[in-house]
Write a protein that binds this DNA or RNA. Structure first.
Lengths: 191, 191
DNA sequence: CCTGAAATAGAGTAAATACTCTAATCAATT
DNA sequence: AATTGATTAGAGTATTTACTCTATTTCAGG
């Protein structure tokens, strides 16, 4: 593993443990057993480390959330996708824990996050539209569909936060409850 | 206004603007035009200021979210409640922006928040059960009902965060879209 | 083996932070 | 006027933070 990757994975672990505000660059360097100077050789500043971790998150979404597009979609595709998404978010959990604060402090980060998020949302919406086309779901009026999508998206983004607030351990079973929550929203429209 | 209240309202304003990590006790004191020593006369430490603001939030929920219990409930009661709740959360918006981080740093705060939250959730659930009893909503199986409540609750807690991420201005119209999102969840069960 | 660039160590700095301490002031009561 | 307790100012402190600078080491290619 390159030193750059070591710094990033160590920072990720510490950020997830204690939050970005509580973890200093010196902490990260010490946890990596390297000097502060070395850390600043690899990263311009602390914000650059956070940005790089966001980039990793984007990459994880891109590579791990792809759909097999050679078959007609099934509901299981949706649940798989959502579950994988929860796993990714959990891996980078500091991001959603502090999301609003982090984005407010960094305009460029906000922009990149918004566009990545928009891509994800569009893909999600297309999947549901494929369900309708395939007769798995009833036709839905445009505005209603948009609202349903927004609700599902809200669940997928904030369900883990909700679990953490409730101090529930994040295990497959609790994560699955987030998946079934989303299915509950769509259920009245599933044939 | 007592000096204590001045400190709290100033701190609230600054926390909402910049986040708790970016606002120091010295900042607060300066913004109040008082000395740091004076601030520490009124509050043991920075955490105590945050705790006091949480108490104000609890109080706002208690006093402003009461239901008129002399008439059979109507759907408009629900929308009014949710709207008022959004206004309260917006007033103390730093709380939900940083919620997971704040609670993880302060065990006592976490406990008080959880119990207050539980009370609110129960009240909300009772209201919906009254709708069912009044024939406004169809009877719903227990597990389904619980899931619906959780979804609505998630929306009420995180909708403003979602708006902030989208950089949308928080206005009556955008807040109303949060209310109709919740109605969209319940709509299939409304008679 | 030499060279030079990349990588690293580690001391150092200016600023900020949470918080303390002491002395002064105020305001009400005796 | 004197006393007393609540309030306030403001200087001070130890620590931490993000980040810089310079000197040294590593190591691949000629």
């Amino acid at each position: 593993m390159s030193k750059r990757d070591l710094i990033l994975s160590t920072a990720l672990e510490l950020f997830n443990q204690k939050g970005t505000a509580e973890v200093s660059t010196n902490h990260i360097a010490e946890a990596c057993s390297i000097s502060p100077g070395n850390l600043y050789y690899h990263f311009r500043n602390k914000a650059a480390i956070i940005q790089a971790l966001f980039e990793q998150l984007y990459a994880a979404w891109d590579t791990e959330l792809s759909l097999p597009n050679d078959h007609t979609p099934q509901l299981s595709d949706l649940t798989n996708l959502v579950e994988t998404n929860y796993q990714i978010i959990w891996r980078y959990r500091f991001v959603y824990r502090e999301l609003v604060a982090l984005l407010r402090q960094d305009l460029a980060l906000h922009a990149s996050f918004l566009s990545t998020r928009q891509r994800g949302f569009s893909g999600f919406q297309q999947l549901v539209e494929q369900f309708i086309a395939a007769g798995i779901m009833r036709p839905i009026e445009a505005k209603t569909l948009d609202q349903l999508m927004q609700i599902c998206w809200l669940i997928s983004e904030f369900w883990l936060n909700n679990l953490e607030i409730q101090q529930q351990s994040i295990e497959p079973s609790t994560i699955n409850s987030g998946v079934s929550l989303m299915l509950r929203v769509l259920q009245p429209y599933i044939i």
